[in-house]
């Protein structure tokens, strides 16, 4: 189950400046755990202590924010692409 994970600029210090990493995993959560092995320290920047995706980070499985799918339990198919993208948000 090879999954491509797209890494945003602020997190590339964990990946030796690579913009994408290929890992194995059946769910988004498993993919992030596998990513942590290849890029130690990165998972804490994506997921908080309670196991939720951090407020200012978005994890997209394909086109969809996993918050609207099954969160970290979202199943990913072989060859899928997961994008980790910092939030663009704010307010008055």
């Amino acid at each position: 189950m090879a999954i491509t994970v797209k890494i945003p600029t602020p997190l590339r210090k964990f990946t030796g400046d690579k913009d994408s990493i290929s890992v194995e995993g059946a769910t988004v959560g498993a993919v992030i755990q596998a990513l942590e092995i290849k890029a130690p320290g990165i998972s804490a920047k994506i997921v908080d202590d309670e196991g939720k995706v951090r407020r200012f980070i978005n994890v997209y499985a394909g086109e969809d924010d996993i918050r609207f799918l099954d969160g970290l339990n979202t199943v990913v198919a072989d060859g899928a692409e997961i994008s980790i993208i910092p939030a663009i948000a704010g307010g008055c």
């Binding site: 997209y60 924010d65 994008s83 993208i85 910092p86 939030a87 663009i88 948000a89 307010g91």
Partner: peptide, 12 residues
Amino acid sequence: RTAYKLNERVIA
């Protein structure tokens, strides 16, 4: 009314 958030995938 007081906040925004957009789909960041548009950047890619």
